[in-house]
Write a protein that binds this DNA or RNA. Structure first.
Length: 498
RNA sequence: GGGGUUGUAGGGUAGCUUGGUCUAUCCUUCGGCGUUCGGGACGCCGAGACCUGAGUUCAAAUCUCAGCAACCCCA
């Protein structure tokens, strides 16, 4: 009986995160990586349910102030090439459709790497007057990028299957900047609901979105000590409006260019949930996005009617399970009764792998005392709960799990942000070590040369200046000397990045 | 971008050096039957693969080339 336990243990997350990650995707049935095209993968039904719950949260946040649309996948070459800065950032990664059947196309069609150049020509047509503004739309679509670096499921893809991109147009720059702030707040709320902690930075000039005035990014910390960008927000200003000639007539009857923003989130948000909360037994899903929030496991001795244990018939165990299921279902909780023929132990392992936040066991022993047993996925704590209190207790427990895993994740992130003091002339070698397993906050001036120099010396990427993440950071207006050139500098975050 | 390694059932392996009666093995795979059932049960029976294409050859899992894919190292 114990023989298997050893061999079935997966690679430990701490020892080899990369292997652990692909193992989990496979075993928890999130993604099938066996599709024979580089960098594209198949969502399993279970994984797709998680994805849809995650994007359901995002949708409901977006829908408050944006309208959902759907633009075409194909972009004609001349439109794609219009914005020079923009295309510079993407041209090496574009997939092209050059033939229709065996006929060479006059104008090659690009598979969208992102949709600015598909959407903005249409904005030109849609926007006529100040009354059309602000215009706020979003879509959730697949995008294609010919990645040459090592691809990774959900993280670096050639087909991003779930790109939520929002595009807004405003009358004034102030309005557009206001929208950037709203988008930051919206993304905060989104990642908070996923229990995924983040740092928010303003990307350095040399690393902003091609065509943007500035870019703000959300990064989270992965278990291998690298940061991963999980959301970006860009102030486009008038650059695209000038390129695509998007103008509106203001109250005085004169034509003005619109001010734009755009912001996006991809399925990396799903990857972050998996990577951050999972453990050596598998997935640990936040209740907000768990396809099954509660799994009910009947403990029965035989399916044959009439056979009893402790004087309790199996049939009544099953009935009790269904009764609990009905109550939960009615209360809007996603529950499931595992009636399969497997032994209870096998069921425990399976649902732990799939990250179900709460397991309820009901057996003859419990039934005699009118109880059931709760087992939390995150901390394996077991409690006895009267059958009459199941619904409120489940609600309380799920909230507890959601809060606890969020707190734990925040603590991990905090514990791995190392703040280098201005007067602390720490050796580069030591900073490099700090950056091995987290984020380093240090003083660096705005010049690209210094940024590149530091990136080379430390083997890191500059994430940028912290933007209002936690109260403490917001108030940190301290200045120091640039690590490289000793000029006046502000704090930036640096880390090894995905 | 450069270099290297690899591709055999759902997963893991062996076989390749030296082509032949080449398929085999294990499992946490799948199916059937039975006994089991409070932390991955067991028995029996059965299923399932040589990455794709071209070439060499009487003969290719094995040799050659190309493609595709995966992994590793360096930039």
């Amino acid at each position: 009986m114990q023989r298997k336990a050893e061999t079935q243990t997966i690679v430990r997350k701490k020892d080899n995160f990369s292997e652990w990650y692909s193992e989990i995707l496979k075993r928890a049935k999130i993604l099938d990586i066996r599709y024979p095209v580089k960098g594209v993968y198949v969502w399993y039904p279970y994984g797709y349910k998680v994805r849809n719950l995650v994007y359901g949260i995002l949708r409901s946040l977006m829908d408050k102030e944006h309208e959902e649309v759907l633009f075409p996948l194909l972009i004609p070459k001349d439109e794609l090439m219009k914005e020079k800065e923009h295309i510079k950032g993407f041209e090496d990664e574009v997939f092209w459709v050059t033939k229709g059947g065996s006929t060479e196309l006059d104008i090659p069609l690009a598979l969208r790497p992102t949709s600015e150049t598909a959407i903005y020509p249409v904005f030109k047509v849609w926007i006529r007057s100040h009354r059309d503004l602000p215009l706020r739309i979003y879509q959730i679509v697949n995008t294609f990028r010919y990645e040459t670096r090592h691809t990774r499921p959900l993280i670096r893809l050639r087909e991003i299957t779930s790109f939520k991109e929002a595009h807004t147009a405003h009358a004034t720059r102030a309005d557009a900047e206001e929208q950037v702030k709203k988008a930051v707040a919206l993304y905060k709320s989104f990642f908070d609901q996923l229990a995924v902690p983040y740092v928010i930075t303003r990307r350095p000039e040399w690393d902003k979105f091609p065509g943007a005035e500035y870019s703000i990014a959300f990064d989270t910390l992965m278990p291998d000590g690298r940061t991963m960008q999980i959301g970006t927000i860009h102030l486009l200003g008038e650059s695209f409006a000038r390129t695509f000639d998007i103008k509106y007539e203001d109250e005085n009857g004169s034509l003005q260019f619109v001010n734009q923003t755009c912001y996006g989130i991809s399925e990396r948000c799903v990857a972050s949930v998996i990577a951050i909360h999972g453990d050596d037994h598998g997935l640990v899903l936040p209740p907000t996005v768990a396809p099954i929030q509660v799994v009910i496991v009947p403990i029965v001795f035989s399916r044959k009617a009439g056979i009893s244990n402790n004087g309790v018939e199996s049939v009544s165990v099953e009935k009790a399970c269904v009764a609990v299921y009905d109550e939960l279902n009615e209360a809007g909780i996603r529950a499931f009764v595992d009636n399969s023929e497997d032994r209870p132990g096998a069921k425990y392992y399976r649902w732990e792998m799939k990250g179900v936040p709460l397991r309820i066991e009901i057996g003859p022993r419990d039934l005699k005392s009118n109880n059931c047993e709760f087992v939390r996925r995150d901390n394996t704590k077991r409690t006895h709960v009267p059958l009459s209190d199941v619904v409120p207790e489940v609600k309380r427990t799920l909230e507890g799990i959601q809060g606890d895993i969020h707190e734990a994740a925040k603590e991990t992130l905090h514990a791995n942000i190392y703040k280098n003091k201005s007067e602390d002339k720490m050796e580069m070698e030591e900073l490099r070590r700090k950056a091995e397993h987290g984020i380093v906050s240090l003083f660096l001036c705005d010049r690209e040369r210094c940024g590149q120099e530091l990136e080379d010396q430390l083997g890191v990427s500059v994430l940028g200046k912290a933007v209002a993440v936690y109260e403490a950071e917001e108030k940190d207006k301290s200045e120091g000397e640039c690590m490289i050139c000793s000029r006046k500098a502000k704090r930036v975050y640096v880390a090894r990045a995905y």
